[in-house]
Nucleic acid binder design. Sequence first.
DNA 1: GCTCGCACTGAAAACGTTTACTGATATTAG
DNA 2: CTAATATCAGTAAACGTTTTCAGTGCGAGC
Lengths: 355, 355
Amino acid sequence: MKRSPKPVKSETPAKIDIRDVAARAGVSIATVSRAINRVPTVDPVLAERVWAAAAELNYFPNTQARALVSGKSKLLGLIVSEITNPFFPELIQEFERVAVERGYEILIASTNYDRKRMEQCARRMLERKVDGVAVMTFGIEDFLFERFAEDQIPVVFIDAAPERPMSSVLAVDYRVGINEGVQHLAGLAHRKIGFITGPLRLRSAAARKAAFLSSLKSAGIKADPTWIVEGEHTLESGRDAMVKILALRERPTAMMCSNDMTAIGVQHALFEAKLRVPEDFSLIGFDDIHLAEYTIPPLTTVRMSCKDLALKAVSALVAHLQLKNLPADAGEMIPTRLIVRQTTGAPKAGKKAKR
Amino acid sequence: MKRSPKPVKSETPAKIDIRDVAARAGVSIATVSRAINRVPTVDPVLAERVWAAAAELNYFPNTQARALVSGKSKLLGLIVSEITNPFFPELIQEFERVAVERGYEILIASTNYDRKRMEQCARRMLERKVDGVAVMTFGIEDFLFERFAEDQIPVVFIDAAPERPMSSVLAVDYRVGINEGVQHLAGLAHRKIGFITGPLRLRSAAARKAAFLSSLKSAGIKADPTWIVEGEHTLESGRDAMVKILALRERPTAMMCSNDMTAIGVQHALFEAKLRVPEDFSLIGFDDIHLAEYTIPPLTTVRMSCKDLALKAVSALVAHLQLKNLPADAGEMIPTRLIVRQTTGAPKAGKKAKR
DNA sequence: GCTCGCACTGAAAACGTTTACTGATATTAG
DNA sequence: CTAATATCAGTAAACGTTTTCAGTGCGAGC
């Protein structure tokens, strides 16, 4: 039953494992394991020998074997909507940075707004045995949910709490940022303000729209439903929505968008229609992706800090992992705020009078 | 020594494993394994029972255990420079799509142009035991290289062959696209053309610069070294490089850039300097990211198809995995070509005369 | 009717770690 | 000087699969 020290001197180069290191350092594999994991009880002299041996052999522990026995994969899953929307790479980058800092690696999956893909993503997380998952897209299927709960895998929803909330939820306070946007526009004397939403099955998109509507109301401005159109958070959908709006008999003088990509699409439509921004038309985005500073002209937008989001998400996950059975909700709100750049100005309509 | 059918009825919800499924289906775990993996020799009746049991229990196989014994992780690594540069998400998305199609999942890592991070990335790939790696950034450290080779892990270099080439290399033919760009500019009567490179330790960036230089020469245009500055493939570096160039006593009338993000940075600098594009200045990017169509005005750029890149990379990897000991190099070239949009036009200098 | 082969299932080894436990040695207290 | 204890190394079990191998039962051929 005893395993031979090494299966056999096969001709294939033979991957290096813990037993090779043990042999070279002249200790048992248990000691190698402890030394590698920096368990303090191991004799410094032996530890040194082990490290040296490991270095000489270019040894890397097999995380699969490690995960299998320890029950911890040291992997954090991150499910996002769409990786080609620049907001997400920014989030991912920060998420990874923080995760690595805390000793975790990340596994990325994107749903592309597709229900089927969402299932696959969740399944993948389960199969790869992530220690925790952050979700920033629409809700997870119910049955998968149960499975996450059964396996005691913490899930944090960034800005997209599902029907039946379980682990923690990172709520974003759209109200203040979007309200600032509306106020800013109102202060510039805009009365005709439109909005391009994101895909409304996204909870976050619906919430942004709601925030817009309520801000409008509190500014005493009447919402015109023909100026509110559903987009998909993409360049195309922003442009298309805007050409539709520009074709209307009565046009708005300003638009707000559910995200920056949409706004850039709108900017493009405006450019094609030979409308100048902000002289002829005002525009406000949402997210404040890095690119927003570089559009022409630079985009006025509502900032939602992805650094905050990432940091809080990882922290919540790690907290759950370390202290089992935390309260389900941190309850904190991620703030948003308006960043004024150059796509907003007073409408010409003021000069031109009503008609 | 015999493992009890189930460790003990513990109070924690107990993750579901293959033994649970076996018990419920009334078969052995071997049969479950075979049924799940659709081995044809298993009795259809039993297979059906197993599938039903698995579904009822929401069973997912543990990929770690599976990988450990089978020696195949079904993971493909992808190491890129920087995830926040939109070119890479586009590549990643396509890479993932194709990989999933072929039965693989992907593990993403980004180096952020940092040598240390590069090492970490490679280490991570080794630790997680990917079956193959695609690399699109600068060269891998030598010692890691050896390790990949030792473990017989195929590596494909996208557009960034290292000093000591090993597995396959996907070469990009910069020549034709960049040459088309220069010709286009020359045809518009530009004689003063600058270039903003990427970080030159990136082989691909160096190659693009070389292609530019040789295209210039074959167009009979003298290169002015003060108009060639090293950037970092980022918005900032593009803008900064351009303001530097605009401060020169003698300015070029057109610029080409090593990637689109740089070009967008340049566009911004031009905007701030109140120079109109293309009336006052012409501009050509590289990559043809999706966004390029949406800049204002839309960016003329050299297209390098990330779909091609992704497809070829995955194919090469999978081929290596299936047919051991393939020739080291597919030898194919990824083509590039100019996409003319609206950032290029005739220079005013022609009208204004020499001075 | 017996043997042979075929088709299929189940038992158990193996994958590369971690970790509980055992045991050896050194150290200290009495 | 002996006994108790602390310190740390090693042995072996365990993690959840896949896969080899042995075995069972059945049909067919003689």
